[in-house]
Design a protein around this nucleic acid. Sequence first.
DNA 1: GTGCAGGCTGTTAGCGGTAACATATTCGAT
DNA 2: ATCGAATATGTTACCGCTAACAGCCTGCAC
Lengths: 344, 344
Amino acid sequence: MKTPAIPDLRRTLTLRDVSEASGVSEMTVSRVLRNRGDVSATTRIRVLEAARTLGYVPNKIAGALASQRVNLVGVVIPSLSNMVFPEVMTGISEMLEGTGLQPVVGVTNYLPEREESVVYEMLSWRPSGLILAGLEHTDACRAMLAQAGIPIVEIMDIDGTPVNSAVGISHRRAGRQMAEAIIAAGYRRIAFMGTQMPNDHRAKKRLEGFEEALGHVGLSLVDREFYSGGSALLKGREMTAAVLNRTQDVDFLYYSNDMIGAGGLLYCLDQGYDVPGTIGLAGFNGVELLDGLPRKLATMDACRLEIGKAAAEIIAGKRPGGVTAGEVITLTPTLQPGDTIRLV
Amino acid sequence: MKTPAIPDLRRTLTLRDVSEASGVSEMTVSRVLRNRGDVSATTRIRVLEAARTLGYVPNKIAGALASQRVNLVGVVIPSLSNMVFPEVMTGISEMLEGTGLQPVVGVTNYLPEREESVVYEMLSWRPSGLILAGLEHTDACRAMLAQAGIPIVEIMDIDGTPVNSAVGISHRRAGRQMAEAIIAAGYRRIAFMGTQMPNDHRAKKRLEGFEEALGHVGLSLVDREFYSGGSALLKGREMTAAVLNRTQDVDFLYYSNDMIGAGGLLYCLDQGYDVPGTIGLAGFNGVELLDGLPRKLATMDACRLEIGKAAAEIIAGKRPGGVTAGEVITLTPTLQPGDTIRLV
DNA sequence: GTGCAGGCTGTTAGCGGTAACATATTCGAT
DNA sequence: ATCGAATATGTTACCGCTAACAGCCTGCAC
């Protein structure tokens, strides 16, 4: 059954090659390979056989140009190295499975100019849709998105005005809610630790919501500490040590993400603090890593998987209801008290 | 200076639109936008102005078809959710910066058939090169890669025969080396824990090398345990508990990755074991997460960043020496003894 | 036999750019 | 004034594929 190896002419194959090898027109080959239109069983088999033995791989560039359809969905996110976006990607991929659409990732490193150029690059491939993290973009970026004429979904955050559709949670509310739980548990001298990133708008909004809720009961943060780069777990330890050494009687540590929170937790346990008795801790994200810690860190789920799925659904036009323009889907994160916050 | 907003005719703009708006030929516009060839300063400014106010975004599909050049590099990896591949991606991105090339990621979830289809999909976009993890592929996949006529770089592993170029470490050797260190430190009753994935060839090779080295001194594993899915940290705890309860006098725990190793370490410390006195531990990968643990897990660096960089260099044709075909770059991981293995 | 629907295959004309070549235009040197 | 080289712009012919439409059979009702 083995056909003799085709001499490698180092010329990329085209439909014409398959067409000649199987004795039908290019159009028919195209139809066979796309399962479109009527083709007799005999022809189909002959064509497929020829394509297979030649090792033909269709040229989507040409196909996309001719058909004006591109089966790609751009996904623009700030980073891949924290655990949050990979899970969003998982949600997107799962939902896109079987739709013929394929995600293409672009990373911005939290830089607005970088985002602008990534978006430009993406749009120049004329994708079927674009998913991007956050609501904050440069003016030029917004303009491009608005002009693009494809579905645009901004994810993660809903505190702001989306270009078109949005799926996410209210980070301001999340911060507020966590603060309220902490206050209710009786903690009063609360410190905050987080990233130094001026462009992590969502972390900023959480902090704003948090401080706002503290303000409502006449409290304010007794200390705060920021970091950038490095191993988050280690930074969590270091910042926690710094805060606890610097400020008296701190009784709660609020972290902008679970990773540094986990570091802080390990530090507190090492140091023999009574957690959550004399000191409570909480993070944000609900990363599964926490399940393996000696004690479970209080956190708040960011609905990453659901966000990815919903965003993909909008792009794929699968949302029940049909109309997909300008939809804003608000998910509500649930507080997971874990073992690091006193029971009320 | 502000021009009135262009009425949105919901028709995507082409070179012709810019050409008409600026009163020059499409070709000249094309030249301006690509900075190619000589164009007078006046014309250039006029064209750029027109393009900007129209909000023109070039169509790379058409450009790529016409020029037969696609500035994309496919990167095919098994997963994004463990910490190893994101770092490889970082290396690739860094090195590609400024070359005009852009990485596009495809994820296979450790499934050979999935890899085959991802590779097919990638090749159908006619990228400038392809980077893929591992040396094990389906026959059809190998054939496609060999035919593609573009640089192919297989990364992470070098124990096998690459299609074209390869950059990685010898996992067999890594396993062997770790075993030798453990034996030298005087441990004798050694257990292994790892993933259940039949298609994680690199983990398998490490284990093979490990057992081989044990065999050389007449030892063999006293126990082994596998897992799949779930939180790696938690699984590490659970498996460790299972092994220690099941088997007497185990004095060393070798983990196939750092994450489960970290879980195991936390468990051992919780249980009050004397680490590394009565029991030693080691993982693999050198993830920076480990820096934040109470004690530093012994591990072996997988050279992720360097692998990414070298692979990107090959694709970009930047390797000193010039010829890039069939290069195999062997990196050597270094053993990081940490605090969980006795000093000899 | 005629006509006509339906299945199957082929032809034509682009999709929106760019390579390669052709054609101005400018300008200083001869 | 003439020429050549350099600069600046335009023209033509694709790139490889697909939409749309145009045949050509075959079989079957009438």
